[in-house]
Design a protein around this nucleic acid. Structure first.
Lengths: 195, 195
DNA sequence: TTGATTTTACTTATTAGTAAGTATATTTGT
DNA sequence: ACAAATATACTTACTAATAAGTAAAATCAA
């Protein structure tokens, strides 16, 4: 597709992750790209269509990652590691997660955006629960509560971890990242999460 | 103080928790109260002063709650229960936590607001870590990681739990609430968190 | 009547969004 | 092959609405 369109999507996403959905405008995008705001409207007639497209792009990226990992035969441990690495990268870049960002603004979003967001979160959670369950059966993970609950628990920690880290400093996220890993990894053994 | 001022603070807080800081305007407040927007500016000359006041009110409320509980001789278990009940109430009312809300918008906030937010989060975390540590020594709680890390872990779960619940439904928060309690409560024993 | 409170009536800036025009490719009919 | 038609990718130049914020006048309460 158009390189301009892709750049707008990219920038729009970055703005959601740094300033929040209601904290950025088409002007932010157009001036950053050296184009006019009407050009942004050309590709995305309304902010809602942009927001929905950004959500769909995210879902697609997630789907591709999962498919790719499964094709390459990643075990559940390495799949979870890859998932958590996304959040580590966000922390490094001082960004939050799109779920946490839009979770704050959800009441101000259009129905289509709300539905797209819900679909995305449900899909991630179902993959996460599934991965945890399978990994547990293989002895890669340990946890006592139902896999679905453990999945919600982990996702929450990651999502708010990034938000807290922006207030308290990056160490806060590192602590959360480590705690998650220590909790579900069989007693202290295993190789460290980072290689 | 003035009842109008108090009402503005209350409404402003509610708007932050439902629509986000960048998702509400002075118009929202004034029309809801049946006054003119200039009247809101009379009490809070700028949105920043309103935001900062809301944060300070929150901190104060937290401080009063803690002091009150300690005066009444609440043990650590009941103190944590009371703290978590704040979040249960928010979930019931479909509100998120001010930390999560402003955590999303932090980059668009003025320095004074950012600092006030940081102070508040640090204070809550230090109380939580302290309460967890003391409770652990009394055998009320169990956990393996450092109390400070456990505190961050719990706060993150609560904060994002509310955000996820708004997308997925209230059951999501209940699951998180229960998971936290199950994790730090000595093996299944103890009375249920809700009475 | 004095001070606190609130309204009236603005301003300035920014927002999302649009209508109409333009330059450059790309396609199509002959 | 060449011109006409058309689609693509924008810009120019707006609008209507809303944002935060202000100055001055009016009202109210002691």
């Amino acid at each position: 597709m158009s390189v301009t369109r892709e750049k707008i999507l990219e920038l729009g996403e970055e703005l959601i992750l740094t300033k929040g959905y209601n904290g950025f405008s088409y002007q932010d995008i157009s001036t950053a790209m050296g184009i006019k705001n009407a050009a942004v409207h050309y590709y995305f007639p309304s902010k809602e269509t942009l927001g929905t497209s950004i959500l769909k792009t995210n879902s697609q990226r997630f789907e591709e990652m999962v498919e790719n990992m499964q094709n390459r035969g990643f075990d559940e441990w390495h799949q979870l590691e890859a998932f958590m690495k996304i959040y580590l990268k966000s922390s490094r870049e001082n960004k939050i997660c799109i779920i946490g960002s839009l979770g704050t603004d959800v009441n101000t979003l259009s129905e289509p955006m709300q539905q797209e967001l819900q679909k995305m979160v449900e899909r991630i959670l179902s993959w996460l629960a599934d991965t945890l369950e399978k990994g547990k059966q293989k002895g890669l993970f340990q946890f006592r509560i139902p896999a679905q609950d453990q999945a919600i628990q982990i996702l929450s920690s990651l999502v708010a971890g990034l938000q807290l880290a922006r207030v308290l400093g990056k160490q806060a996220f590192k602590s959360i990242h480590q705690s998650i890993w220590e909790e579900i990894t069989p007693s202290g053994a295993n190789s460290s999460p980072d290689k």
